[in-house]
Design a protein around this nucleic acid. Structure first.
Length: 320
DNA sequence: AAGACCAGCAACCGCTCCCAC
DNA sequence: CGTGGGAGCGGTTGCTGGTCT
């Protein structure tokens, strides 16, 4: 048995919204809000529209501070970077661009941005200035794929959440970029290319950058991977601070107010989220090595594998 | 001038997620 | 804990206006 429809499809109007309908919807929501029930809303206003349609109209067109068209170069870069990191998770991408809707970004990507990048790539091929270095078969997750190495855009990995997204595309940022304060001054930035071109056969998972423990007494006390701490290490590290230690969380990602740590089930480690709590030393003045490789990387030395990761991380991570 | 084609974008559809009960 | 239903999301459709032939 199929699911019951959200409204009577035969009696609702479809297609473009008239100015009168827009006015009714806008006027009502501005006065009363949505009441967190979109399904009931059209009946209240006397609109012959599906509740979902009302929601979409409001979110994508009528609500205040919506920007349409005219994407700046900076916005394009953000979209490209995030698409490369997390794929077509438009709502999350939209969350990084104030005033933009997921629909708008999705349309912009599908109609302009994707083609723009493709054209840029093809132009380079034609000019021969940056010929593909390899075209060969690669073994990815058991599948043989013929792929071309391309000049995928560089993605600067400057923030904690950049790392999060790279390692676990399903992981949703805990705070908005406006509110987010990086707990650690990494003291460097590097590109995705840099990262995957490094040799490694590690198959462990970690997130933030490696801290060169040889140059930092404090850092040397942090065990775990790349600055994250397991429960034991954290207890040891914080033992003298009379610190409340949280229970093992059940959710994938949980924030604890004190001592300001986030447990990441993906890594099974605790990560500092608040510099003010002085949980982890400020490493900005210390020497930081580029991060060690930390996801399943056997075979990443293969250029064709690199290109797949660069071009389509979601496929690489098995999300498609 | 008119039909074909194309790009842009608003809106719809159907699925999953999440939460209240 | 299971279920139902609303919210949210991403893929797709189809309309419109512009350009090409």
């Amino acid at each position: 048995m199929g699911r019951a429809p959200c409204c009577d499809k035969t009696s609702v109007k479809k297609g473009p919204w008239s100015p009168e309908e827009d006015a009714k919807l806008k006027d009502y929501i501005e006065k009363h809000g949505t009441g967190s029930n979109w399904i009931a809303l059209p009946q209240k206003i006397g609109l012959k529209r599906c509740g979902k349609s009302c929601r979409l109209r409001w979110l994508n067109y009528l609500r205040p501070n919506i920007k349409h068209g005219g994407f700046s170069e900076e916005e394009e870069n953000i979209i490209c970077s995030l698409y490369l990191s997390i794929g077509s998770r438009w709502s999350i991408i939209a969350g990084q661009l104030p005033g933009r809707t997921d629909n708008d970004i999705k349309n912009y990507w599908n109609t302009k941005l994707k083609r723009k990048l493709l054209d840029k790539h093809q132009l380079k091929d034609q000019n021969g200035s940056q010929q593909p270095t390899v075209s060969k078969r690669a073994l990815i997750k058991g599948n043989l794929e013929t792929i071309e190495v391309t000049d995928a855009p560089e993605v600067m990995m400057n923030s904690y959440h950049d790392h999060q997204r790279l390692y676990d595309p399903k992981m949703i940022p805990l705070v908005s970029p406006e509110d987010y304060q990086c707990p650690i001054n990494y003291g460097f930035s590097y590109t995705l290319q840099d990262r995957i071109c490094r040799n490694s056969s590690m198959d462990v998972v970690g997130i933030p950058p490696a801290i060169d423990s040889s140059t930092s007494e404090d850092c040397s006390r942090i065990s775990g991977i790349d600055g994250g701490m397991d429960k034991e290490a954290l207890e040891s590290f914080l033992g003298h601070r009379n610190t409340y230690f949280p229970h093992q969380p059940t959710s994938e990602v949980t924030v604890y107010g004190d001592p300001g740590l986030k447990y990441d089930e993906f890594t099974s480690l605790y990560w500092p989220i608040d510099l003010d709590n002085n949980i982890v030393v400020d490493v900005s003045s210390r020497t930081c090595n580029p991060p060690t490789l930390s996801y399943q990387e056997v075979g990443l030395q293969d250029e064709s594998v690199q290109s797949i990761l660069l071009e389509d991380p979601r496929r690489y991570f098995g999300l498609q």
